[in-house]
Design a protein around this nucleic acid. Structure first.
Length: 616
DNA sequence: CGATACCCTG
DNA sequence: CAGGGTATCG
């Protein structure tokens, strides 16, 4: 969720966050009550939106109506916030703004992330420990903060909408022209051609509300009142906000106070208790990508012969909740693998969400969850009223509407927060307000918490490490070989290509390094290629070892040294012969090296191998 | 046409 | 390391 937060497009560089400014200047209480900056203030901080067209005066009323509407959303959301939450969120917002400092606020990345419930979730439900209460409170508080920040950000976006609408009809906004697919060359055309199948594939620069959907709405002559797209989004957001908020509150209360309701006062008390937000970092983003953490329930000793003193932070693997709401390859929850924790899982399964997300992510045909999604998806869509089938910035708004109309509760579980994050991500993505890859990241994280224990449906850091070590033996593994060595991975097209991509990246680094040293040798006046031998204490080896074997906890096979030496010599000879003038001069070398793969020790096949990596 | 390799970029 | 693009192969 925090990813979502820092992923939110920063205000234009010349513009500080209007809300932050208000916060600085005045006591935050006022901001909380009325998060809207005055129109003057708004314009003052957004110079490029300040061009007032004469025609605007005619539509002032129009604008006010829109603002009032959006404001009602904000205020509706603000109601349940406690004073502490306000204060906290304000500070968070301010901190966020400060951290931004023109760059991505990396540091804030983990700050608001809600701690995952660990293995002992059931224990946390027990009303024994104050810490668990505090933790829950912390969660709730942070959720609310997050929501508020989102809202504030939305507010800003809506201002942009209002203003850009005014501008759009009166001037050929050069920026907008630039955004139009038809006018930006072949690649853009290609993008829009595939837009239907990749509804969420919204490039960042089109991810503001200044998207085609608005224009579409207006092109249809929808000039009276709010543009239909705005109206639809507004309604969708309202629903989403209401549902999400109540769910968060409910779920946290239920979790922390099984006899919820009678201890509301305690909540406020506990809210003030600061708690460390232990949170794993996850820099992974993008579709079908491996998360950095995984539940590692199995910890059987690996059978790697060498001292596998793998050193990845334990917290990485442990902090994640091991909630095992799991999916089979068919996308059906395997009840047999559900832990009996007494969580009331909502009637709507995560499967539905996942399908929707999958749809949004453009994985419609081959859902990450399996193959039966098409059936269900169509079932979902049948209930969807067609008039809402708008496209908004290449995103099917309908998907949101479908979800909204279903009004199913999100599953209440330790993955609540992730689900919530996804709900928001959905809203953000559908409205074109957030980058698709960030949604995907959220998506992957969320999905991770539902992964079966036995079969990894995602590639973990452990797998990556294992792959790197395997690179010492094989530079060009076939997909079948990979399948036979990652037995604990449930292979899909996505997983396969990711693994292959990994090795492609490994090779890339490898060849770059070797080439670098080959050229260096040439400059140093080496004449005989045979003198170029890669030994364990050579610079080249150190560079490679650092990359593939960080920590030097794996004994690199001698064969790899031979291969590296040969690669080095080949590069040396080629460069010396001036072959590097040919754009494809590396191809022959690649061909040679590709034949030098050796067998991988059977030990790598051990399913626990990649998990062992995380624990030793 | 899909899978894959390579290249380039962030 | 991931993404996107292009080139190539069967």
């Amino acid at each position: 969720m925090q990813q979502l937060l820092w992923a939110l497009p920063a205000p234009r560089s010349t513009q500080t966050h209007p809300f932050a400014q208000v916060c600085v200047a005045e006591s935050c209480a006022r901001c909380s009550l009325s998060p809207w900056p005055s129109p003057q203030a708004q314009r003052a901080v957004s110079p490029n939106l300040s061009k007032q067209h004469p025609r605007d005066q005619l539509s002032d009323q129009h604008l006010r109506a829109k603002r009032a509407r959006v404001e009602s959303i904000i205020q509706g959301m603000s109601l349940p916030l406690t004073p502490q939450a306000f204060d906290m969120s304000l500070r968070a917002a301010f901190r966020h703004e400060r951290d931004r400092g023109g760059e991505v606020p990396r540091e804030s990345k983990g700050k608001l992330r809600v701690p995952q419930k660990g293995v002992g979730t059931a224990g946390q439900v027990a009303p024994t420990g104050d810490s668990s209460h505090a933790k829950g409170c912390q969660q709730l508080k942070e959720q609310l903060c997050f929501l508020e920040q989102q809202l504030r950000w939305l507010q800003e976006k809506f201002y942009q909408v209002c203003d850009s609408e005014d501008a759009s009809q009166t001037q050929e906004d050069s920026e907008k022209v630039q955004l139009l697919p038809a006018k930006t060359g072949g690649r853009r055309n290609k993008d829009s051609a595939t837009a239907t199948s990749n509804p969420c594939k919204v490039p960042l620069r089109r991810s503001t509300l200044e998207v085609h959907g608005l224009e579409e709405a207006e092109d249809r002559g929808d000039t009276g009142g709010l543009p239909s797209a705005v109206r639809v989004l507004s309604q969708a957001l309202k629903h989403e906000l209401a549902v999400v908020t109540s769910q968060v509150v409910d779920s946290v209360l239920k979790t922390v106070w099984p006899k919820a309701g009678s201890h509301i006062q305690k909540q406020h008390h506990s809210l003030a208790v600061p708690g460390p937000v232990a949170r794993r970092q996850n820099s992974a983003g993008g579709k079908c990508r491996k998360p950095l953490a995984k539940p590692s329930p199995m910890n059987a000793p690996g059978s790697l012969g060498s001292p596998q003193a793998e050193v990845l932070p334990r917290a990485l693997g442990k902090s994640l909740g091991s909630y095992a709401g799991s999916f089979s390859s068919k996308g059906v929850r395997k009840s047999s693998q559900l832990p009996s924790m007494g969580y009331s899982v909502g009637t709507a399964t995560p499967v539905q969400d996942s399908q929707l997300l999958s749809q949004l992510l453009g994985n419609g045909q081959h859902s990450l969850w399996g193959s039966n999604s098409r059936e269900n998806t169509s079932a979902l869509e049948r209930g969807c009223p067609e008039p809402l089938n708008l496209h908004w910035g290449n995103v099917k708004l309908r998907s949101l509407i479908v979800r909204q109309q279903q009004q199913h509760p999100l599953p209440l579980s330790p993955s609540d927060m992730e689900s919530l994050g996804l709900s928001w991500a959905l809203v953000m993505c559908v409205s074109g307000l957030v980058r698709r890859d960030m949604l995907s990241s959220q998506f992957a994280t969320w999905r991770l918490s539902l992964t079966p224990r036995q079969m990894q449906e995602v590639l973990t850091p452990g797998h990556l490490k294992k792959a790197k070590l395997m690179f010492f033996f094989t530079r060009y593994p076939s997909s079948t070989l990979l399948k036979s060595y990652f037995l604990d991975v449930q292979f899909s097209r996505c997983i396969t290509s990711q693994l292959i991509k990994w090795f492609s990246n490994f090779r890339e680094f490898y060849y770059i390094q070797v080439e670098k040293f080959a050229r260096q040798a040439l400059l140093e006046g080496v004449v005989d290629p045979c003198t170029l031998q890669v030994s364990r204490d050579s610079e080249l080896f150190r560079a490679l070892n650092m990359h593939y074997n960080k920590g030097n906890d794996f004994e690199v096979p001698g064969r790899f040294l031979e291969v590296a030496s040969l690669t080095l010599q080949e590069f040396f000879s080629a460069v010396r012969a001036g072959k590097d003038a040919d754009p494809s001069w590396k191809k022959p070398i690649y061909k040679i090296i590709s034949k030098l793969d050796s067998d991988i020790p059977e030990g790598f096949k051990a399913a626990s191998c990649s998990q062992e990596v995380l624990h030793s």
